[in-house]
Amino acid sequence: MTSFLQALIDATSAGAVYALAALGIGLVFGVLRLANFAYGEIITASAYTLIIVWPMNPVLAVLGAAVVGVAVALAMNYAVFSWLRSQSAATLLIASFGLSILLQRIYEGIFGANVLSASVASGLSTSVNLGGVRLNLLSVVTIVLAAMLLVGVQLFLTRTSIGLQVQAASADFRIARLLGVRSGLVIAVTFAISGFIAAAVAFVLTVQSGTVGPSFGVQPTLFGLIGAVIGGLRNLRGAVVGGFVVGVALSLLTSWLPPEINPFRTAFVYLLVIAVLVLRPNGLFSAGAGKVRT
């Protein structure tokens, strides 16, 4: 029972990480129709900041990671994606793929191909005892952090004028502009928030692993993107839930698959992804799932 609860908390925390990644990707997709493959490189940039600065000054490291995440996201927007605004989603995706590979090589050039290590927030790697159940503190912190960010983004989208404009631009950019919604501002704000979320993902993952390499952000981005797609990229809530489901599935498969087929856990996740896409092409949670043709 205890181990079941622990596994459940761990799975929830893994799900929370990918839900955050899916949120960051889904926000930008909503406004720009860009499935940003290079989201991982924003995470990586923040992670390098954390690992390098933490030993000197933890507070500075956390602030720096957030600033770097936002800055890299904005730089991507202005240097690359703002030039491609009239292009198709396919072109945007390919460009972001190119940007991702390019940045990984640049990180490799700057920081070397090997991983850098530092223990970030080692205090979180301990276990706490809650009513007889030993819980990984980091898992709990991750869940709380993710919940706070989700609520924060939700409040921003519904309670602020800019947030409302982001929602309008996601629903119909053309009409939003006719109402006076500044396209450049809305896109920049969206990128900035997605960069901030990337920094949060980087924080959780660096505490977990204590290391960072050039392709650090690829894995969470892949699963976040996959989650967002199976949840339905056109609907932010679906995207977040999709990311969560992928994380939970990965974690549960890791703890429950018998050892002889455990190496295939990732293969199972991909099989699941294909199955979901084939059965519900418009996403698990899209209202338009009825459009499936048989």
């Binding site: 993107l225 996959i226 990229l233 190496p263 295939f264 293969a267 991909y270 099989l271 084939v278």
Partner: peptide
């Protein structure tokens, strides 16, 4: 997979690659 289109098709084909790589790896 061929009933899919757009990004879903892109992700599904990518998942296929990952699936094949995982199987061949292990």
């Amino acid at each position: 997979l061929m009933r899919l289109h757009g990004l879903e098709a892109g992700i599904a084909t990518f998942a296929l690659l990952m699936l094949v790589v995982q199987v061949l790896t292990y």
